[in-house]
Design a protein around this nucleic acid. Structure first.
Lengths: 343, 343
DNA sequence: AAAATAAGTTGACGCGCGTAAAGTTTCTCA
DNA sequence: TGAGAAACTTTACGCGCGTCAACTTATTTT
């Protein structure tokens, strides 16, 4: 690698002794040229500092090899972890991931999709904000660009979706909690951020009823994505005013549960299994921090790896299918019960 | 906005009655055209669906209006939070942020910088991996592209840096802990991931010595970025084998402290201030989750907002200065003591 | 070894936009 | 009001690469 930078493909063609169209083919798909040719190119590449101009490359292509990844809130470690999985798999598959976070802001989500569209990505993995999302805008986007929704399913959106089976997971949690102690109350935010929340509540209710127990839902106020804080504040007043009718509380998600654990601690209530504890608390999602709470949080885990794999598998399928309509296939994963000390 | 999409600027020039060069000027800087012209353009923009082809736009420009943001590990909420701050400020300043995470992998960090270079960004905000980073590569990169390092300072790198004053913050913590109870042990990972770690240890030692106390450092094994787990595992054995010579432990960062809190809980040791608790534990960074641990974690906060502002301010300065050499200005922020229940 | 096929070369054109030069219109201010 | 300045239009070229057509060379097949 001599320091002199090669200006363009023309010049690199001279230096390498390979014609420009062949180089163009190589850079688009290195497997598409003969082995001997590939070796010659890669030898020249090692000797000279040349990288194709990505802007010129993409200008005339109808689609690039970029894959957009859009999450609603990246400061949530849950999404950070999913994004990490997806990114690494995209790279492994030869694509360039571009990561976006809507930061909980619907207007920003729209802007992201707009700017994404003009980047002509091969495909997009989109975890929508949910309730706040501009439904029409997203629908228009998905009609234009191969998209797989994940985590949060938007109703009546005819696109592929990968997520977890909230009904199954909540039922499993309820059953577990009922078997090992008192039937749980359900703890959630009053305003549902996304459809998952509604599905989880419904699953809680029906699972309780199936066991002959009375469902009991405790809703707390709070807007936005600061779930831990909402869980903490709501939990403090709930404990103080005795709103829980059971010593077992099932939270809509782990972040609320983390807040609620904190509220319990501050209310001098102990959490854990067995007679000598005041409450049992369980969550949902296997948030990366749930292992480290005090006590460690009982929850349901999503298999990040499998879900990422499946999302990309479906996306590639959509990308490669000419008739890119009506791939409204849903793929739901079962959760796995993670039994820890808190319940 | 009629549905028909406008193919290119030429066509939009026809439709809007504005010449293409003027449109070009407008899209590069909307302030650079007369108000009356701007109004006409924006009226046409509202009526027709046109967005310039970003690839064609950037192909001939020496630099784009993209700003790269590179963090070492995005699944760490600390970096997620910083990235969020930086992103929003970039957008507000009219730039397009592009976010990358090295996922703790030095090879990936190099790849990111390479691909970033070919994207011709106006500037880059880089929080390097630290110890693992390919120093030479980063230095070459910063020589070529306006870069501001943040969070982790690489030694002998002549680029602007924004971070916190670890010496000040550790000294403050040590003083606080000594005033309110026993002098602390220092809890850290054996292998230092970045220079901050070394600086914090040194600051601990000198602060202790200044107060006439014997520094006592407890190091735990573990590689990678799973700090909580390392803190937990190391903490369990440290408690079991009685390695702490004081009932007060100052952790190198909050994530280790979160692990150590968990270890204490599992070891049936209570954490908090006062006689009736077994240990006091403090951290460093004001990690987004520190407010919610049980007990809430005493720590030092970094002012995310101010640091983000300053980083971008310096970056813009570097971008706009012709002689882009020797802006080796360091900007260190004082930490603020966040006194919570754990110490 | 000849024929068929795959891969590479040469030459040329186009993409959508940046940008420069020269001429024209509009604005600003004495 | 009448200059001079500022903004705009017209025309034209170039950027770096994708891609097509026609031809040549290397490899595989029978």
């Amino acid at each position: 690698m001599d320091g002199n930078k090669v200006k363009n493909m023309e010049e690199f063609a001279m230096l390498s002794g390979i014609s420009r169209p062949t180089l163009s083919k190589y850079f688009h798909d290195s497997e598409s040229v003969r082995t001997s040719t590939r070796d010659r190119i890669e030898k020249a590449l090692a000797e000279h500092d040349y990288r194709p101009n990505i802007y010129a490359m993409n200008q005339n292509r109808r689609t690039t090899n970029n894959i957009g990844i859009v999450v609603p809130f990246l400061a949530d470690p849950f999404f950070a972890e999913i994004a990490r999985n997806l990114e690494q798999r995209c790279i492994a598959a030869g694509y360039s991931p571009i990561l976006f976070s809507a930061h909980g802001d619907a207007a920003l989500e729209v802007e992201i999709l707009d700017s994404l569209r003009s980047q002509k990505p091969a495909g997009v993995l989109l975890a929508p904000l949910g309730r706040a999302s501009d439904r029409g805008h997203i629908e228009k986007f998905t009609a234009e660009i191969p998209t797989v929704l994940f985590d949060s399913r938007l109703p009546d959106m005819g696109t592929a979706f990968v997520g977890m089976d909230n009904t199954q997971s909540m039922q499993m949690l309820v059953n577990y909690l009922c078997e090992t102690g008192s039937p749980p109350n359900f703890f959630e935010m009053r305003v549902a951020v996304n459809p998952n929340v509604n599905r989880r509540r419904a699953a809680y209710v029906s699972a309780m009823e199936a066991l002959g127990h009375m469902p009991e839902i405790v809703q707390v106020d709070g807007e936005g994505w600061e779930f831990e804080d909402i869980g903490l504040q709501g939990g403090l007043t709930a404990f103080a005013t005795g709103r829980f009718t059971s010593n077992t509380v099932l939270c809509s998600n782990d972040r609320l549960a983390i807040g609620l654990l904190s509220a319990a601690y501050r209310s001098h209530l102990t959490v854990g299994q067995g007679e000598h504890h005041d409450f049992r608390i369980a969550g949902h999602d296997d948030h990366p921090f749930s292992r480290f709470t005090c006590p460690a949080l009982t929850t349901v885990s999503q298999d990040y790896a499998s879900m990422s794999d499946k999302s990309l598998e479906i996306l590639f399928e959509v990308i490669n299918s000419e008739h890119r309509t009506e791939i409204g296939s849903d793929c739901l994963f079962d959760g796995i019960l993670i039994s820890r000390a808190s319940a």
